[in-house]
Amino acid sequence: MKKLINDPADVVSEALRGLEAAHPDHVRVDHENRIVYRKDAPRPGKVGLISGGGSGHEPMHGGFVGLGMLDAACAGEVFTSPVPDQMMAATKEVDAGAGVLHIVKNYTGDVMNFEMAAELAAAEAGTEVLSVVTDDDVAVQDSLYTAGRRGVGVTVLLEKIVGAAAEEGRPLQEVAELARKVNGNGRSMGMALTSCTVPAAGKPTFELAEKEMEVGIGIHGEPGRQRLPLAPAKDIAALLVDPVLGDLPYQQGDSVIAFVNGMGGTPLIELYLMYNEVRQLLDAAGITVARSLVGNYITSLEMAGCSVTLLKVDDELVRLWDAPVNAPGLRWGA
């Protein structure tokens, strides 16, 4: 294992110290509970938005705390859900009387820990908590016999769009409905060229040969559904875009936000090359790209690879997407 770390046990806490030191205008960090707060939270009258999950996906979620996005992010150990104490503390802290929305990616551990936290916060402090679970990964085909689809790229787009709506002062129920609409209109598919190494494990989670790739990968180094021979980017783009387009399904004339996300170990030059391929496939399918996002936003440590997310949008969603955002990991218009 070759990493820029001190002790594997200190990776998360030291990274949070760095985030706080680098972005003092955006965030403050409760180091004991490992919660990243928007500097000026709680905002009076505003619905509090909380997300969280295992670490190792940076900039998600701590990098998305700030104006127009999240009020708090709870950081777990690498690839491990945070615990209910963290979400409870964050829920109480950001509740300004308008209630709190939990944004949860659909993983067994995350769902269970957020559920326990919501139950405890309601019982202890009387805070009104609604939850939305993201589950956009089309690689998981049979939801009946699995834990359901995983929450991946749509989570980033959702936190931005719903963050803008909360910033406008919309009530909790409306914000939650908007979040469900975004999740329902988005689909993703990812692939990996290499594995990643969890610091505490010290060795790669899985092995991929030089000429192999894993298609349908999640964001935790958990193997995907199919191991295939490495192919040109053009073919990989089709392997990702086709199942996404077929799933919702997206139709000719639809407008989308097209999101090509890096898994952490792939350079931007390759991500832009992939975006070019994705764009051609969308043009050929008659899909209009209203907005795009290219870069490393929901990563899997140093894994090389990418994911493609398409979110079907209307004028309202585009307007909320364009609204100002000012967080360590995403900034425009502010």
Binding site: G76, T80, S81, V83, T108, G109, M112, N113, M116
Partner: peptide, 12 residues
């Protein structure tokens, strides 16, 4: 255990 373990095994 709920407070320290995380993941699914913590709540379970």
């Amino acid at each position: 255990l709920v407070s320290k373990v995380g993941g699914a095994s913590g709540p379970l």
